[in-house]
Design a protein around this nucleic acid. Structure first.
Length: 328
DNA sequence: AACTGCACCAACCGCGCGACA
DNA sequence: GTGTCGCGCGGTTGGTGCAGT
């Protein structure tokens, strides 16, 4: 019968997204929330296919995304997880909630893979092939293990949201239940639109530089601190590359220099709360009905006991990944 | 200065899966 | 049980910038 194309190829725009398109998309999602991508192009007037819109949102515009500058800790995690899971980038990304699968995949293909191959070549030259010993488990077992973990994490996200909400000193950034999704997404999307504002800021700066070198930076900032789009823009964040917009970092303290520094000091910050908050809330696309109120105390205990048993510090790194530790 | 090769990364493409009628 | 639809995932491609010649 043949699968119909995901969208009408006629009149569909391809290639890089413009800042204007980004704003349109973010504005729409801010209003309606992510999901139902099928109708996004028609409702927004964007000449993009629904998949392109979804991809743009999940890989680039979604709040909470950390871009570029993989820390040493993150590198190790990716190497570990890739050894364990193989090229299941979405599963790997679930352990690094600030990173998208696409980002991790790219980083692996461009950096880590080559580095490891080089290193493996050296090892084989030095001491013969010991690589085969690094796969003690059957692949099916790995998958099973991963799927169990992912299922647990998904449950954990769903179950912990209310706890997370009540534990927060200021619950404003995380209004939790689905019946209150608007406020959640509004705050999250506000950060996203702020990102757009920063992108636009740099975009115009770049175009200004090309046409009129040396124009003042503050003027561009003020012109794009539109309250309807972004809320603030720190002057220290003025140097954003248009091709690799660092300004798209996450917005709640997971991001950039602070977390990088702490992680590079060997103390992994992927505690359960962070993972839950990022994966469950910021992604904003969980299919779990968070309004479900059911007697899951037993399950909750199991989940949180498990998380705490692994310890908050480095609880992700301790996942029986010793076989790949030698790769680093 | 011009050309070439390479690295990087955003975006696209095709397929599989689950939900639903 | 079957077909359709929407979404997510992984592999791949194409554009861009940079370094080397």
């Amino acid at each position: 019968m043949g699968r119909p194309p995901c969208c009408d190829k006629i009149g569909v725009k391809k290639g890089p997204w413009t800042p204007e398109e980004d704003i349109i998309l973010v504005s729409y999602i801010q209003e309606h929330g992510p999901g139902n991508w099928r109708v996004v192009p028609t409702n927004t007037g964007l000449l993009r296919c629904s998949k392109s819109c979804r991809l743009r949102w999940t890989n680039y515009l979604r709040p909470g995304i950390k871009r570029g500058n993989f820390t040493e800790q993150e590198e190790k995690m990716i190497i570990h997880l890739q050894a364990l899971l193989g090229n299941r980038w979405a599963a790997i990304a679930s352990y690094l909630p600030q990173r998208t699968d696409n980002d991790i995949k790219n980083y692996w293909n461009t950096h880590l893979k080559k580095r490891l191959e080089k290193q493996q070549g050296n090892d084989e030259q030095n001491q013969g092939s010991s690589v085969s010993q690094s796969i003690p488990k059957g692949q099916w077992e790995r998958r099973l293990q991963t799927d169990i973990h992912m299922a647990k994490q998904a449950l954990c996200e769903a179950l912990s949201l209310d706890k997370w909400n009540t534990n927060l000193p200021d619950s404003k950034p995380f209004p939790i239940t689905l019946s209150e999704t608007k406020p959640i997404q509004t705050s999250a999307y506000a950060a996203s639109t702020e990102n757009i504002a920063r992108l636009l800021q740099n975009w115009t700066k770049k175009s200004q530089n090309s046409s009129q070198a040396g124009s003042s930076q503050s003027s561009t900032q003020t012109s794009f601190n539109n309250p309807s789009i972004g809320t603030s823009s720190s002057p220290s964040e003025g140097t954003i590359s248009a091709t690799t917009p660092e300004g798209f970092d996450s917005f709640m303290g997971f991001n950039s220099s602070n977390s990088d520094v702490s992680q590079s000091e060997g103390e992994p910050k992927y505690n359960a709360a962070n993972v839950i908050a990022e994966a469950g809330i910021l992604h904003g696309e969980s299919k779990i009905n968070l309004d479900i109120q059911m007697p899951l105390t037993l399950l909750e205990n199991w989940l949180f006991d498990d998380a705490s048993a692994q310890g908050q510090e480095g609880y992700l790194m301790d996942m029986s990944l010793g076989e790949s530790a030698d790769l680093i």
